[in-house]
């Protein structure tokens, strides 16, 4: 298959982690967070990871929405930790959102980009990151106060700590090999049902506090 050349500036090592282990290892206890997951692999795997938790809004379309949904949610719920899981393709589609989010600097928001370097849903074409584009550098340039790259298992512990304890707005680039996301295939991500479930769960949680 013909390919574009990798960027000469591409310096990150080849990805070695399998997302099916690395994503759960990074997030650990998803019930502690309000979560938004972008299409497509991240929404399926977060849905599986959380056992279809109502505290997760998963996107099956509207590519590019997840990071900015996370911003609106984080500003609306400043006492909860908000986690956005997005893919490299989704983040690239609205990469300016990194600049918008950094200017607001909500301390309760963490964005995890599960970067497999490919458009996994559409025939596994190389994405820009697979050819060497650096989303971690873009996030740092946008002004994210905390940027962490997970290349190997050794980098996961610091990623886990950031997700859990925060310490400010954070961007975590989780670099994984190409390959399928965990997909239990149970859920159809009907957007208005996702919304109703999420809001009802949040209201119940608030009442219980």
């Amino acid at each position: 298959m013909a390919k574009l050349n990798k960027l000469q500036t591409a310096t990150l090592p080849d990805a070695v982690l399998d997302r099916r282990q690395a994503v759960p290892a990074l997030i650990e206890n998803p019930q502690d967070f309000l979560m938004v997951a972008g299409l497509a692999g991240t929404a399926w795997e977060m849905s599986a990871l959380t056992n279809e938790s109502p505290g997760l809004f998963g996107l099956g379309g509207a590519m590019g929405a997840a990071p900015m949904m996370g911003l609106g949610l984080a500003l609306a719920q400043p006492r909860r930790r908000v986690l956005v899981a997005t893919g490299d393709g989704e983040l690239l589609m609205n990469v300016g959102a990194l600049a918008t989010i950094a200017l607001q600097n909500p301390p309760n928001l963490t964005i995890i980009c599960v970067d497999n370097g490919h458009y996994g849903e559409t025939g596994n074409q190389d994405s820009h990151t697979g050819l060497g584009v650096r989303l971690d550098v873009m996030a740092a340039g946008a002004g994210f106060p905390v940027v962490h790259v997970v290349n190997t298992e050794a980098d996961l512990a610091e990623g886990r700590r950031l997700v859990r304890e925060g310490g400010g707005l954070a961007f975590i680039l989780l670099r994984v090999k190409e390959g399928p996301a965990t997909h239990l295939g149970k859920k159809n991500l009907v957007p208005h049902i996702e919304r109703d479930r999420f809001k009802a769960a949040l209201a119940q949680g608030a009442a219980a506090r």
Binding site: L34, V36, A76, T100
Partner: peptide, 17 residues
């Protein structure tokens, strides 16, 4: 940076009440 960010943000705000 672009208006479509705002559409997604409005939805996220609503999720959070």
């Amino acid at each position: 940076t672009t208006e479509e960010e705002g559409v997604a943000m409005v939805a996220g705000a609503d999720l959070g009440g």
